[in-house]
Design a protein around this nucleic acid. Sequence first.
DNA 1: TTGTAGGCGTTATCAT
DNA 2: ATGATAACGCCTACAA
Lengths: 337, 337
Amino acid sequence: MPNPPTIKEIAQRLNLATSTVSRALHNHPRIGLKTRMQVQALAKELQYEPNQTAIFFQQKKTFTLGIILPELSEAFFSAAISGIEDTANQHNYMVLLGQSHDDTEREKKIVEIMKNHRVDGLLVSLAKNTVQYAHFDMLRKYNIPVVFFDRIPDMKDIHYVACNMESGTVQAVSLLLQQGHRVIGMINGPEKLIASRQRTTGYRKAMQQQRLKYDATLNVHADLSREGTRQAMQQLLSHKRKVTAIVAFNDYVSQDAVQYALEQGLQINRDICFVSYANLPLSSYMAFPPLASVEQYPYQQGQKATEILLALLADKLSPEDYQQVIIDSRLVIAPGR
Amino acid sequence: MPNPPTIKEIAQRLNLATSTVSRALHNHPRIGLKTRMQVQALAKELQYEPNQTAIFFQQKKTFTLGIILPELSEAFFSAAISGIEDTANQHNYMVLLGQSHDDTEREKKIVEIMKNHRVDGLLVSLAKNTVQYAHFDMLRKYNIPVVFFDRIPDMKDIHYVACNMESGTVQAVSLLLQQGHRVIGMINGPEKLIASRQRTTGYRKAMQQQRLKYDATLNVHADLSREGTRQAMQQLLSHKRKVTAIVAFNDYVSQDAVQYALEQGLQINRDICFVSYANLPLSSYMAFPPLASVEQYPYQQGQKATEILLALLADKLSPEDYQQVIIDSRLVIAPGR
DNA sequence: TTGTAGGCGTTATCAT
DNA sequence: ATGATAACGCCTACAA
């Protein structure tokens, strides 16, 4: 099994210089028609394929985008990566994958490996606990642009695409108010998360719009674990005002909350209603799907983030011209399959 | 912004030869202790990192595995890829991703691109309609080993990991028989799929074990679309014998079938029971989860396939020593979350 | 113990 | 219109 044919081999067989062959293969304008034909014919015959690793090396470019995200098996992220992959492929880029498993140390290691692999750019959704960003800042030195998406760092001077939960939350709470609910509980996430704060703001704004007063004790911060959700539910159900509707942080939380409510003998959609945020494409499969769900557009986020990164790489965008795209979340009622 | 430091630069500063520096960095035994220290100290100071693209080029190896699969957003595949990624990373390999979207042409194109990117090996789960495998055979010429998983080609002399549906099907049907069901319908997949044939065999064997006769008219082949499933249900529900249990091809099919049954006024788990195959990690969220579900171990399939590929790459396995691993599916009752 | 030199495949620069 | 040559960064015989 002979080595794959190279430009040099073609050159020798045709008594040409390698440079000529290279140019002929690239349809360089000032190469004689017949030599060009000869070269291309022989190339086809030998099934010549340029050695990309050589080109990567020589051009200092790999046409590869690194993607770092917490968990591929979460539906949200696998949808996002679909958007990334599709967009990247349209531009002849490949996609190098890494999961942080929500572990900052692993995230750092992956950044390191990807840097060494000389990815042209990076798309990142942060691990849950990442609060320092030195391992990303470091990439500036290597001229590797980074675009964050969804789980973005709390800092300026970065590119990112994220979904604003506020708009969807306003719509969700408004829907509940419109249906006559007055005491609406919210099972929110950790306070330091931007996404939690957006939910809080959305909740407050929806109340203000109806000239109702916002009751902070109805907005419970939990840690998204099943146990945390149950505690939050306990707190809400024992509130001095009777809670008739609940906005849950996401579909997982929603399910845990529903389960708790059932255990307490409540009847879903009669004693208590739920609205949630769509992390799952499968809410139509749930036993008690939420009344409505706030869509976060994972595919589109991935798509948009990739477009920004590619623009950066194509120098169509200056690195300092920080793109901060915010997609508005939107309430979707009775999400179908 | 200066270029990243190179071995040559370190050599110049220390008045050494590049080869010495290279060896010092690799802890080559016969390099003087003090020069080694010097070199490593300076390397650290300059934050030297070897240029992997140069190494890839020089070593004709990229430490990258290509993965081609139909749809990342299907839970089954995203679980599989998790297994792949984790295993690859443990061995310091990276993972290059490509989705065929169940389109053979796209699959071919991705194979081409990955070959050009000089991936060291390929993990593939076939697009639904792929029936010719020339684009994979071609890789032998380039010495790029391929391990197939789950959706494997119907040919000899390949490496693969797959899940045998037969065992799980036997268990599923046996469970239903044990619960007293005698007329069991099966909504099977396209006849040409290996996985469909395995289900048929499993069904038949389970019946034989109880000395019951297998009725082929209860085994309906559908196309997995919602409409196809509804037609299959219609056929089964109008069977001359009264069908009291159904084995559905997968959880999606199961849900569509449940929905149809509900529309026909049947009560789930009283008039009719369902057993299914777990494509979703979320059956616990379903309105009417199947009684039991056949687990297909996607993570383990990915893991095992990767291990085989890595063994091949490490020459611990001869390319002609075709590994054909079959993981037995297994019935899981009342799958929890 | 260290240095020299060549090569991996391609493109780019400068000649001719 | 084509050729010669250097360069990319690293490794590894082979020499000294």
